[in-house]
Design a binder for these strands. Structure first.
Length: 353
DNA sequence: CATACGTGGTT
DNA sequence: TAACCAAGTAT
């Protein structure tokens, strides 16, 4: 009979191989008594939701430089925070980030709650993030279950039930392994293991601290786990984006409504996005078809955006949106799909960039 | 329980 | 090129 997986073996591996991350307190520093800053742990966990470490790093550095603590972030302008989040995706996270920071300041005296339930009552903090902050920031024995943990548990126990059906069972398995000692380091260790050794495609079982007790390794099924329910095909939607530039170089942009796709973000005015979009120019002008489409894929559909451009006079009065002065217009503040529109259109417009 | 919600890297 | 994947949450 194989021996059962031991949290201690994973912690030993973590002590030697923990990744050095901007928001992380190393296991050595942690054992010396250094405590993580809950603000930085919270911010990193929100950014890391469905997002890779590589993509998060520069955003984390920028945010913590601009807003070093929760009070500073709570006092920030919405537009500034949304602009800094541009490109990272899942923009509801940024809207909830601000709501959460302001709630922490207004309702909790500027300190994050120190219980999982208290954390989970805040905007943008769900089951995973509440457990992660509890464990990592406060060293509470909460069980984190993210995609890494699901994969590691499914393999360790050779569980073939497909996700999301398997989620409760995987959570129970993860819960049974969570140690009372060093739960914060343990939580980070399982995720590091999933991110660097027990990877989705070709896991490095040969150097895994849990190779001996791993049931999927024994059965040779590790590359097939966890199983997942088949995904739906993505439909293609069409749309029209309008890029208007005033003679002084100002660009017409609109802030999108808070609800829905790209909510709260800046973008070029446009039609609806559907199979048969209705033209809807934001002002009267001689619109010219750029002749090139911006193509972009969202989570659940492909988009092909036709681009119309126009140069307009200084007295142009848009029905929608507002002109942004040339010197305050930053394409980097646009969500990626809109930045693609910019990239395609800017060669056509004299004063852009 | 299913769906909406971004993006960039990898295979 | 297209599909898959990443430290999920809200509704």
């Amino acid at each position: 009979m194989r021996e059962t997986a031991q949290p201690g073996d994973l912690l030993d591996w973590y002590d030697a191989h923990a990744r050095d991350l901007p928001w992380r307190v190393s296991p050595a520093d942690r054992s010396a008594g250094v405590r993580p800053d809950p603000y930085r742990i919270w911010l990193s966990e929100i950014m890391l939701q469905q997002t890779t470490v590589a993509a998060v790093k520069s955003y984390f550095e920028r945010f913590t430089t601009l807003w070093p603590d929760v009070a500073a972030l709570a006092a920030a302008e919405d537009a500034d925070v949304m602009a800094e989040w541009a490109g990272l995706g899942y923009y509801a996270r940024a809207r909830n980030l601000l709501k959460c920071a302001r709630a922490v300041v207004a309702d909790h005296g500027g300190r994050f709650p120190q219980t999982r339930a208290g954390l989970q009552a805040l905007p943008g903090i769900g089951p995973y993030t509440s457990a992660a902050i509890s464990a990592i920031a406060y060293d509470l024995p909460e069980t984190v279950v993210d995609g890494n943990v699901e994969r590691v548990m499914a393999r360790l126990h050779d569980l073939h039930t497909p996700l999301p059906e398997a989620k409760p069972a995987l959570t129970a398995l993860a819960d049974a392994l969570t140690p009372q000692t060093r739960p914060g380091d343990y939580a980070q260790a399982v995720m590091d293991l999933g991110a660097t050794i027990c990877t989705p495609r070709s896991p490095a079982c040969g150097i895994c601290p849990w190779r001996a007790p791993c049931a999927a390794r024994a059965a040779g099924t590790m590359a097939d786990l966890p199983r997942k329910s088949p995904k739906k095909p993505k439909p293609t939607r069409l749309g029209i984006a309008y890029v208007a530039q005033r003679d002084d170089g100002a660009i017409l942009l609109e802030t999108r409504p808070d609800k829905g796709l790209l909510g709260g973000m800046l973008g070029f005015p446009g039609s609806d996005w559907s199979e048969t979009p209705e033209p809807d120019p934001p002002l009267e002008a001689e619109w010219q078809d750029l002749g090139e489409e911006a193509r972009h894929t969202f989570t659940h559909f492909h988009l092909r955006l036709r681009i119309m451009v126009a140069q307009v006079g200084g007295n142009a009065a848009p029905r929608r949106g507002a002109f942004h002065p040339r010197h305050s217009y930053r394409p980097a503040s646009l969500p990626t799909v809109m930045r693609k529109v910019h990239d395609l259109a800017h060669g056509r417009l004299r004063e852009m960039l």
